[in-house]
Design a protein around this nucleic acid. Structure first.
Lengths: 275, 275
DNA sequence: TGAATAGTGTCTGTGAGACAATATTAT
DNA sequence: ATAATATTGTCTCACAGACACTATTCA
């Protein structure tokens, strides 16, 4: 028989929080950015890559595999604060664009015990990274190919290549939501291939209807560079005039010019808020 | 000094999962639907309302306040499975549209202890509810008014009215993401006003670019009814011809007609997948 | 007949896709 | 001069907003 309490205070004094078995939580962060490839042809622009920061695990479980920067959430720590803490650990950056993505809660994600993980996406401009990233961390360029039912992803940091394959199945006919399953994966720990794929998908969508891209850009940029960033994340070429029309209201022309390439100089723009 | 392990198996055998303090997790579900208001004028259509299912708490904490259907997640239970279990508890429905929304993780959401909650949104067609909902549950019609910085919500189940007020602040200039804070709230438990508001916002967005609305419709419906559902959720009137153009590719005319109102009969349509 | 809803026609403006054309630089 | 990128012009087509008009029912 349940005891009758007269007030909330009385109830809380008595409350035994151990009646439900508790679990551990982590926050994992997709730190996305854009990298420039060194270019020797003096005429050509340096090619841009879409990239993500991974960390090599130096401990079990999944020792020597790569994973997303992450960590356990403190018992009195807000989840988003935990994400910020982890982000600052890796990059020493603060006040960064950070968005909660999805909470992964399959019972056997982690071989140690029950761990639920909330994933976040951070968008950074690499130029603001004045400090070095930690030894065990590395930027991987992302190449993703996608057909109706499969996603092929290759991550490349210049010396190592990580490939994995994900199947996608429409969850229901009324939406564009997919259930993702790992088909092939050697080098990534946990279910992080799923986290990466869902993050890429979210970012692609956000590019189309928000201004998030400017979180990955320096203060001044050319429209050509900006277009390249869109193209490399969306994975498709865009038409110049259409792109410029689309972006026109979001940017502001400055009196600075980008010169030095063996071609017509380009006006430098900056982000203009408001719409 | 950390012990050196030779293999993952060896490591796991030794692993002590108690080194991090664990926490509790719940799943809370926004069960959205559409209700018909009884209508006595034989000519008029019955007015539709956007509605959500709430449960009256019969226990501390927040005794006698209303809250979203929810419950603790079992130590070996997938979060989404927990959400389905809770949904079935309240409605006895299965195979329902269910979407993860957001994970709320402020340290003091729950006065008992640290509880992180993942919220889900379920969309149902009330006509498929053959069983009664539980005694302590009730459908509330949603009326939401919104200006630049505040959201006023009134929930009404016919005999009781719940009002609350939320402030919204743009998180950053590059997106349309808002930080919500509760300004006034008497009758709802926990941070559920925030959950409700973020769910409404998500649903509004989804209406515009997916077919989720059909999860709330019966198999056969008139375009007038369908338009009313859009209008009542979006909180604005739509123009008939524009609405019909927009919806045309998603529905299929049937040979059934809706008659009996004091006005021209209406063709019954059904959802047509593909696009 | 009239209130109420169902359904269509059409004008206009906006904006995206497509392609062509011109402009400017360093070597 | 030439390769490479920067930038603009313009035609067409699709589509959304707006408003007007016609159709059909039942008390």
């Amino acid at each position: 028989m349940m005891k009758e309490y007269k007030s909330e205070e009385e109830f809380l004094k008595d409350y035994d929080s151990s009646i439900f078995e508790k679990l551990s939580m982590t926050a994992d962060i997709l730190i996305f950015s854009v990298s420039d490839e060194v270019q020797n042809n003096y005429r050509k622009l340096s090619k841009k890559h879409f990239s993500v920061l991974l960390v090599k695990r130096d401990n079990y479980p999944f020792k020597d595999k790569w994973c997303l920067p992450g960590g356990f959430i403190g018992i009195d720590e807000d989840i988003e604060d935990a994400a910020k803490r982890i982000l600052a650990n890796e990059t020493n950056l603060h006040d960064i664009y950070l968005e909660q993505l999805y909470t992964f809660g399959s019972p056997n994600r982690d071989p140690r015990m029950r761990v639920v993980s909330t994933s976040y996406m951070a968008l950074i401009d690499k130029n603001t990274l004045n400090e070095q990233i930690p030894n065990n961390a590395s930027w991987f360029n992302i190449m993703a190919l996608e057909d109706k039912e499969t996603i092929f992803v290759t991550l490349d940091n210049g010396s190592e290549e990580i490939k994995f394959k994900i199947s996608k199945t429409l969850k229901e006919k009324t939406t564009d939501r997919y259930k993702y399953d790992i088909l092939e994966n050697d080098k990534l720990a946990f279910d992080h291939p799923l986290v990466i794929v869902s993050g890429i998908s979210r970012l692609k969508n956000k590019l189309e209807y928000t201004d998030v891209v400017f979180n990955m850009m320096p203060e001044y940029f050319t429209l050509g560079e900006l277009q390249q960033v869109y193209e490399v994340i969306l994975g498709k070429k865009l038409l110049d005039p259409a792109f410029r029309r689309m972006i026109a209201s979001k940017v502001e022309k400055t009196d600075k010019m980008q010169t030095g390439g063996g071609h017509r100089p380009s006006v430098l723009f900056k982000y203009k808020s408001h719409d």
